[in-house]
Design a protein around this nucleic acid. Structure first.
Length: 675
RNA sequence: GCUGCCGUAGCUCAGUGGUAGAGCACCUCCUUGGUAAGGAGGAGGUCACGGGUUCAAAUCCCGUCGGCAGCUCCA
């Protein structure tokens, strides 16, 4: 065995280092600055403490404060600080696990009584006191037997039990001490000391079970979050507040777009206002489909079980499907549109001249979701995919994917999303199909991405079992990522449905199938838009684009009269003919997020004008009616991103300003996906 | 689905064992007022549903349904 380890660095360079050196030693060899900045590292792809011994060859990446993962280390340290404070205040509390999460960290405890909000305040206060003491994190290593003894000495029963299962695989068990205040068995790494946990906050408590298993002891989980600077923490908390204000589950019903009811849990009821938004989006997409040579179809909502057995959905997805029985046959409500599209494909014998055959469907699908995961429009049990299936030859994949990416950019930009992240997911271990086909498919996707000049990340091994895919995340005005679009290659479905085309050689061939969705789900996209715009939809999407506000009822006939001129131009306009004062009508129209408020008094009647007050802006003065009709018609036709002055909405919604330009609070891809 | 919390008027919420409340919204009347809430009056609730305890239940207990947060899940 060589005494030298070959260490590969992120830039591809390799270093030869003695095997018994640690990752921290390597950092010091690279530079003293890096050694000081090092918080932890990735050694052979796993998060490790700087004290990790190399022990052999591998790849090394040093985590500094600037690394995206550094905050996870900080949060992990914060979890220790939390546990230290809890043990101080509740000496009988048994410790569970305390890992970092995407948003923060948590720690599980076995305690007699659930933690109260007052307890959390005391714990947080104690954490601040402990932080001030500034005890360093110091690492100790021992073998499993010694570790078990140590855990029993500390009174950590659950961890001791856990270790007994673990010890077969782990040779070295590490502990982290903070002086004699607190000790925890932990892989590390950690920041230097409690003092280094600069900004943190406890955000709540909830129930949990030991090791996540309901048959195990119930525990209490305390959630918190931590950042390197107070500014980042404040920003994070402000973002959460902002997201709460924009919550589509509150705004949607308030703006009369949709509602949810006990009579159909998980299924939205679309109101007239929501349907306007729906139809505008649908027509945007349909316009693109036409220009790109798609055919649009509609397949049945309910099809027999046999179909779903054939497609493979029954085996894999049965628990999430709805079934109905009639005529002693069993039918399933469709959870996906592709089998229907395949049936339509197979109604004809296709020539290679027909390919690529692009078949689109706004398909209403039903998927039974566990009650706990339902979340307004973001996670519903019934939703409408803007689905399409492209049947083509392997040679055509690249061009088709390129066109999908182009359409995606156009649609997203029109909706107001410029920031998009793409992920290429390649072959998973458990897969079907020949290697050669996978090679071709993956390289087709990759070259399409390059041809589109798109930056992308590779999620190796994350593809579907039936083919590789590109997942597209858009970023909203709060910096949150949402997985909406997806482009998936499928070699299996054409096989299962025995789809064919006749080639130039006169022989029958198997087409490749591309599943693609741009919006993902109409419902969810509308939810995202409501939150993205804080309810202040641009003119083309707004259910009511302008409202006429007569000063007194003397001007009401005039208002009704000119409203007709707006409607004839295809615009959506209301008249507020109530007997309220103008201030009250303005306030009300603002709360409805109507883009244009048009005030009409005697002067305007006289001059055949309206006084224009754009949403969020000040009085723009009198504008001839015909000019304004033309202006709004243009904004509508062009699907202009926002009405020109609609920036903020001070008073009742300062919510829209300030956040739009801020950098992403979290770069994590969106928490939900539904395609 | 799991853990915890919650369910009172269209909405936001008071009401901890003794006759169901407020603000906003709605309706009527007065007011006709020029850029973010004019005034008065009225109507509106089987306190989610079912069972139990009690002389008495919105209130306490059990169950069901629904919601929220977190967990898990999203072929």
């Amino acid at each position: 065995m060589s005494a030298v380890a070959r260490v590969t660095l992120p830039d591809g360079k390799t270093l030869e280092v003695e095997r018994d050196k640690t990752c921290g030693d390597v950092a010091a060899m690279i530079g003293p600055g890096l050694a000081r900045a090092a918080i932890a590292c990735y050694w052979r792809g796993e998060l490790c403490a700087s004290e990790q011994q190399l022990g052999g060859d591998g790849s090394l990446s040093i985590i500094t404060k600037k690394s995206p993962d550094a905050v996870r280390v900080l949060r992990h340290s914060a979890a220790h600080l939390l546990a230290a404070a809890v043990r101080d205040l509740f000496p009988d509390a048994q410790l569970g696990f305390g890992p970092p999460t995407d948003e923060g960290f948590y720690y599980d405890f076995v305690v007699e009584e659930p933690f109260t909000p007052e307890d959390l305040e005391r714990i947080e206060f104690r954490m601040r006191e402990l932080k001030k003491e500034g005890l360093p994190f110091t690492r100790r290593e021992m073998d499993a037997a010694a570790a078990a003894a140590e855990l029993r000495r500390l009174g950590y029963q659950l961890k001791a039990e856990y270790l007994e299962e673990l010890k077969l695989t782990a040779e070295v068990i590490s502990f982290y001490d903070n002086g004699d205040r607190f000790t925890d068995m932990c892989r590390g790494g950690h920041v230097a000391s409690f003092q280094a946990i600069s900004a943190f906050k406890l955000v709540g408590a909830s129930g949990a079970h030991w090791r996540g298993d309901v048959d195990n002891a119930p525990m209490q989980r305390i959630h918190g979050t931590a950042f390197f600077t107070q500014e980042d923490l404040d920003h994070h908390l402000a973002m959460i507040e902002e997201a709460k204000k924009r919550d589509h589950r509150r705004l949607g019903p308030a703006l009369d777009l949709f509602s949810f009811h006990e009579e159909a849990p998980g299924f939205p009821f679309w109101h007239a206002g929501g349907m306007v938004v729906w139809h505008e989006i649908e027509s945007l997409v349909r316009g693109e489909l036409l220009g790109r040579g798609y055919k649009e179809i509609r397949t049945p909502l309910i099809m027999t079980d046999e179909l779903w057995r054939k497609s493979g959905h029954y085996d894999h997805y049965r628990d999430n499907m709805y079934f109905v029985e009639k005529d002693s046959r069993s039918y399933a409500v469709k959870p996906m549109n592709c089998p229907g599209a395949c049936i339509v494909y197979a109604t004809d014998l296709h020539s290679y001249r027909d390919l690529p055959l692009r078949i689109a469907e706004f398909g209403f699908v039903h998927r039974y979701e566990l009650s706990g995961v339902l979340h307004g429009l973001f996670r519903a049990r019934g939703f409408t995919q803007d689905d399409a299936h492209v049947y083509c030859t392997p040679d055509q994949i690249e061009a088709e994917v390129l066109d999908c990416l182009d359409m995606l950019r156009v649609v997203y930009r029109t909706l107001g999303f410029d920031d998009v992240r793409l992920f290429l997911s390649t072959r998973p271990e458990d897969r079907m199909g020949e290697e050669e086909l996978w090679d071709r498919a993956e390289s087709a996707l990759e070259s399409a991405l390059r041809a589109a000049d798109e930056e992308f990340e590779v999620n190796a091994g994350d593809g579907a079992f039936y083919g590789p895919k590109i997942d597209i995340y858009l970023t909203d005005s709060l910096g949150r990522g949402w997985q909406c679009g997806t482009i998936q290659l499928d070699f299996q479905m054409p096989e299962r449905f025995d789809l064919e085309y006749v080639g130039a050689d006169g022989a029958r061939h198997r087409p490749v199938m591309i599943h693609r969705a741009i919006l993902g789900s109409m419902e969810r996209m509308i939810g995202v838009l409501v939150e993205h715009y804080a309810g202040q939809l641009p003119v083309w999407l707004a259910p009511v684009q302008a409202i006429l506000l007569p000063i007194t009822d003397r001007q009401s006939p005039y208002a009704e009269d000119i409203a007709v001129r707006f409607r004839k131009a295809g615009l959506r306009i209301d008249v507020d003919g109530r007997g309220d004062k103008i201030g009250s009508k303005i306030r009300d129209a603002h709360n409805r997020r109507i883009p244009y408020l048009l005030i009409v008094g005697d002067r305007e009647v006289q001059d055949e004008t309206v006084s224009v007050r754009p949403r969020g802006g000040a009085d723009r003065g009198a504008v001839p009616v015909d000019d304004l009709v033309a202006e709004l018609a243009r904004l509508h036709a062009e699907r202009a991103p926002m009405s020109d002055t609609a920036q903020s909405d001070e008073g009742q919604s300062a919510e829209t300003q300030s956040v739009r330009t801020q950098s992403a609070g979290s770069d994590e891809p969106g928490p939900t996906k539904q395609t």
